[in-house]
């Protein structure tokens, strides 16, 4: 029941974030969505994810506020209002149709399949020595994923350094 309340709160906060006129208030509404997600992870028995989501949300909010604090939002005159709305609604309808097809095949809430995980849960602590099974999965059984994730983060940092570099020397010499 508390999950339903949290999800409805998240939906309202997301609507506020999308529809707010002021950029700063919409950023703060996104923060509300993120912290509610952190609480939902805690209820779903995922404390690792709750800690990570909390700190990541704080850093994400700092970066977003830093980016939008001094930049005003000019009043946008909406052109081609009907065409945009109709195409968006068509996209959402297509998405909902395929997700409805997929939802029938999913296991119902609260009874996961747990086919692969049985082995991890049974042998996790004895094989790897780690008590926390999530850490055992991401750093021992499925460490390739973590290597790929590290590569993605490294690429993102390199990209940000390249995009935000200072202007080159050529201009100064002229």
């Amino acid at each position: 029941m508390e999950l339903h309340i949290l999800l409805i709160f998240m939906i309202f906060a997301a609507i506020v974030a999308i529809e707010a006129k002021d950029l700063l208030s919409s950023v703060i509404a996104v923060g509300a969505v993120g912290f509610a997600l952190c609480l939902a992870f805690l209820i779903l028995k995922a404390p690792d994810l709750a800690i990570t989501q909390l700190v990541v949300e704080v850093l994400c909010l700092i970066i977003l506020i830093r980016a939008t604090i001094n930049r005003d939002l000019p009043l946008v005159i909406e052109g081609r209002w009907i065409f945009n709305t109709i195409s968006t609604l068509v996209f959402i309808a297509v998405f909902l149709f395929f997700s409805w097809l997929a939802l029938k095949e999913l296991p119902s809430f609260g009874q996961p399949l747990m086919t692969v995980v049985k082995k991890y849960l049974a042998e996790g602590t004895t094989k790897t020595g780690a008590v926390n099974i999530v850490t055992a999965v991401i750093l021992d059984f499925r460490a390739y994923d973590t290597l790929g994730e590290a590569t993605v983060l490294f690429t993102a940092v390199i990209g940000i350094m390249a995009v935000l570099r200072r202007p080159g020397r050529k201009k100064i010499e002229r």
Binding site: D48, Q53, P112
Partner: peptide, 27 residues
């Protein structure tokens, strides 16, 4: 116990999401 495999996948996904957000914001 709950299923730890989706949690492990989502743990990497959260940090990747932060990297993506920072990159798009800088652009």
């Amino acid at each position: 116990m709950v299923d730890p495999l989706p949690q492990a996948l989502v743990l990497t996904s959260i940090v990747i999401g932060l990297g993506i957000t920072a990159l798009v914001i800088s652009i």
